[in-house]
Structures are given as structure tokens and as C-alpha cells.
Amino acid sequence: MLIDRYAYGNRLRHTEPALKAGIALTVLTLCLALDHPWASLWALGWMSLLTVAVARIPARVFGRILFGESTFLALATVGIAVTLTVATPPDATLWRWHVGSLWIFGTAEGLSAALRTVSRALGAVSAMNFLALTTPLVDLLALLRRWHVPGALIDITAMVYRATFLLLDNLHRMRTAQECRLGYVTARNSMHSAALLGGNLFMKTFQQGRRLQYALDARGFDGELRVLPAKYRSNPGLALWGVGGVMAMLGMWRIPV
């Protein structure tokens, strides 16, 4: 949970989450709506700058998370840029390859579509990573509550968040215990170990859920979890950075491709 750790300790931690979410969602929407390679690349650069220089997230961490999905990106881009067919390809191909009766080829059109998709995806990912790396999930949930998302849904999500860390802790301890006892040594064995782990985790989930329920019942739980909202600081500097970035992004959009 690398992202969660940084979300709790960065320079923008106490900044109003509505502002951070506003910037990230605006840039994300613009990346999709403008669908313009220069605007997307500008978004990538600008959001990286905000994350690294303003929020002080290490550049290495940001890069690692940004390219965390490079496998999907690479495979799916190949899917867009490459054509597989049995028919003879048109003359205007960049490259072609004849395998048996099958033609594999790429066109300039396909390549530019692929590049556009890659830049759009990277711009969008950097915007969402800015939000994820600077805002803990609890702040986002409090924000959603202010935006009138149903309380039951938010409570369940908050519980899932809490349960995730409880279960993750259990998972690590159980896995260590298994590894000490020659679990996961062969493929067959690791399937067995994984099944024991999953089954035990389910039972643990049940037990802990029940214990939490007893604890809350004892304190007069009536079906709603109430906590005090956190106090945030306003940050006019960041607002200015955000507005400037969005204006520049719209400016980039005018550049013809």
C-alpha cells in the first residue's frame, strides 16, 4: 500500500480535499474530452510537477506508480496498432509481415491512434495519481459524504477500507507462518497453501466482523458510524496552480496536430 503511505504524509495532506479532487477530475475530464496529444502530455507534465514539486512525493515513487500498468498499456496498444488478417493488406502500410497464410501489419493511421491513446491514458493516470497520492481515502469519503452520496454506501466503503488493513495484516502473518513450514515450495504445494490461506482468511473475516459487531452493540450502535469531520486548510496557491494548468491545457488544445 505504497500510495496510502504517501497520502498520509505529504505537503498537501491538510489541503481542502475538494480542491485537490476538483483539479484532478477537471484534468481527467479534459484529457478525455479534448483527446489531444499535446494537451494530454501537458497534463502529464503539469500533474507530475504538482505531485513532485508541490506535494513533495519522491519522483521515483511517482514514476513507478505511473508506469505500474505498463504491461496492460503495452499489450493493449499493440492491439490497437497491429492488424491481423488473412486478406492482403492495403499498399499504405508502415510494415508488414507474412506468417503462413496470415498477414500481420501496421498502418500510420493505427500507429497515430495508438499514440493518442497512450498519451491520453498517461495524462489521465497522472491526474488520478496526483489525487490518490495526496489525499487519504478517509478524506475522500468525507468529501463524498458532503456531496450527498448515500450514507450506507460510505459506511460500507469505510468498513472495507478498515477491513482491508486488518485482513492484510492477517494475510501477511499467515503467509509468513506457511512459508516457515515449507508452504509455497512447489507449484502444487503453493496452490494448497493459497487455498488454506483463503479459507482461513474467510473464517478470520467472519470472526472479526462478529467481534466488531459485539463491541459496537455494547456501545449502543444504531446502524450509523458517526465521526467528527477533519479540519482542512484552504490553499490559494494550489488553486492558482490548478487554474493556470487547466488554462495552459486549453491553450495546448489549439495547437494543430
Binding site: 460500507i156 485482513l167 483463503g198
Partner: peptide, 23 residues
Amino acid sequence: PEQRLMLGMAGGFVFILSALKIP
């Protein structure tokens, strides 16, 4: 009403399950 907690735990379970490593 107490199922709220159980549902939360179940959600955590579904999420954590994707952290299991299988060959």
C-alpha cells in the same frame, strides 16, 4: 442493521483475495 459491518468485512475479503498469489 448490524450487517453493515459484516458487509464491510466481506468487501475487504473480496479485495484482499486479489492479493493471494497462485501459481
